[in-house]
Design a protein around this nucleic acid. Structure first.
Lengths: 352, 352
DNA sequence: CTGAAAGCGCTAACAT
DNA sequence: ATGTTAGCGCTTTCAG
């Protein structure tokens, strides 16, 4: 009695080979699309494969190739907060598309409580993934060190925290939007409009994106009064609260650069409630250019565009290339380790 | 020159064994916590393991055990829509907790576009997961048939679509809230209050939960006029829109059973805008009992409680048990295949 | 162009 | 209590 199916109940390479009257090697070659196989053998193998419904066992394959064609997408954020922001959806979408187009599969891992770090570490070290995309990291996030320690190729959105040990060569890369440059352009535009009291509502300052956007503001307005800078938290309600505080402390404000569209929507709402006309009394520029938000506000929001989907694709592409380099045993050369920066551009609508 | 580390650069069982002066079997036993090992050997092995930073290669392990300790959580919903609803967050949380407590790891897979079905099928058939949890299925979702075909243990939230081939034994299970019973209780309460014109705002009717809640309504009010039933879509805005329609078509409505808290929040907003007092003019009962919503509405919402987190845990537990049964080669007996039903209960606050 | 043979790193009888 | 021996299902030299 020959065994045509493995104990798991599924046909093996061996079974296909016997049925097609060829060797395992030949079947393997056909499966993996290697060229040196006669058309006839290819046809026979293909037939048997679909007849038996053969699917290669990924564990056996990974054991020898050391590749799983799977990459982890690690998200350090409570799920509910994360996905409310359309920016993340676009980014996710870009990541997924690029990954699948290049034959890799994304698996999402969430960090929601402290113990999750250990679980994720466990998962990442089992050899089930070829690399990791690290999203929405906090300033002192242990994830980059973890992937480093595991020698697992990784790329982060954002950039290395300023405080960090900047000289050590890394196994992980950064991909980032030009937050500082975009902010600079936005603030320059406001100043160019002739506004005298240009304030800013920042994001949560433990995120480097928020820090960088504030730096862009300060690049243009190095002498801005401290009251002109109010910290928000990247939510609509936070933007509204920040705008209220700003108005109390600085009634004469005539322009504000808000570090995200969502917060800008909240700020516009407050401005309207307080009877300030936009842009006549107060000009507003946001950041992100989420069409669903920026085109829907009243008035439509001028904002800094960053192509979230393209950023996602870029992250995925960078990771996949890095994985390939590591597999090729190449010494990771410093050049590609420089952060990849996505350009931004100011999109003018009606609010400024 | 002995090889202490595999080509991937990581130490193997073999390396640990040599270093600790024992056989591979002994190391394996220690790693897997099997009892028959001398305390001395355990100590030595543990030392070497942490010294070398040894982590078992999951692919090698899975190849022989046929277990990956990983389960897929397949979500058939655009990410952004899904996570806005706190109900899903709770359910997710319950799933994750139960899974990790029992030593399994969840990986999330999203279906966002038609081609994703093929990708998910591919992933599920590779032997990388032990089973699958199927969430938020549409009425004619191909996923259950897929897991069935792959002989992959699976459990779905919800229930088999009524139209389906109900007699065939399945490899997948259902876990469900008592949607119909809960709706019945809610409507009975409204009727018991003496309301004469009791309407309902349903969920999206391609979801079985929406269908079942409507059936509960009809159980109590079989003769309700067609205008008393308005279809929503499980969003806040959808609930508001439905309430507006209801008011136009049926100004005399004095009670409404809304099939989700989120929609009920929208309905309450519209009622307030139109100057109808709740519960004096119109009594409202929701469904879900999301504290963040039901306690925050004005007035606080009476609603049908379903323990989303517990439902998640139950799903995970059911799947894990099912996987164990399948592994034990047990013929899947029909009894546990009956859908598991989570009870619901009416929570009275101020809106009815 | 094809097959034989040698492992990848691990677990699981089966001995001892 | 511990070691020996076979594989799990696949890819990959290496010969032919």
């Amino acid at each position: 009695m020959t065994t045509d199916r493995s104990a798991a109940g599924r046909p093996t390479l061996e079974a296909v080979a016997r049925r097609a009257g060829v060797s395992r090697s030949t079947v393997s070659r056909v499966i993996n699309g290697q060229p040196a196989v006669s058309p006839d053998a290819v046809r026979r193998v293909r037939e048997v494969v679909s007849e038996l419904g053969y699917v290669p066992n990924q564990n056996a394959r990974s054991l020898v190739t050391r590749r799983s064609d799977t990459v982890a997408v690690v998200i350090t954020e409570p799920q509910h907060r994360l996905f409310v922001d359309p920016y993340f959806s676009l980014q996710q979408h870009g990541i997924r598309r690029e990954l699948v187009e290049r034959g890799s599969y994304p698996v999402l891992l969430f960090i929601e409580e402290p113990e999750d770090y250990a679980r994720v570490e466990d998962f990442l070290s089992r050899g089930s993934v070829d690399g990791a995309l690290l999203l929405s990291l906090r300033a002192d996030d242990p994830l980059p060190d973890m992937t480093d320690r595991l020698a697992l190729p990784a790329v982060c959105v954002g950039r290395r925290p300023l405080s960090g040990q900047a000289e050590r060569p890394d196994r992980y890369l950064y991909v980032n939007s030009d937050n500082r440059g975009g902010a600079r352009e936005a603030v320059r535009h406001l100043v160019g409009l002739g506004r005298r009291a240009v304030a800013t509502i920042t994001g949560a300052m433990e995120q480097t994106a928020a820090v960088d956007r504030l730096r862009g503001y300060r690049d243009v307005l190095p002498d801005a009064a401290p009251e002109m800078v109010v910290e928000g938290d990247f939510t609509e309600a936070g933007g509204a609260a920040a705008m209220r505080r700003l108005l109390e402390r600085n009634p004469e404000v005539d322009a504000v650069f808000v570090a995200s569209d969502l917060m800008a929507a909240g700020a516009l709402r407050v401005l309207r409630e307080r009877g300030r006309r936009v842009p006549e009394d107060v000009a507003v520029v946001g950041f992100d250019d989420i069409p669903a938000i920026a085109e829907a506000t009243d008035p439509p929001l001028s904002t800094v565009n960053q192509d979230a989907e393209e950023l996602g694709r870029l992250m995925a592409r960078t990771l996949l290339d890095h994985i390939a380099d590591c597999a090729a045993g190449e010494a990771v050369d410093p050049a590609p380790l420089a952060p990849v920066i996505m350009p931004t551009r100011l999109v003018l609508r009606a609010s400024a």
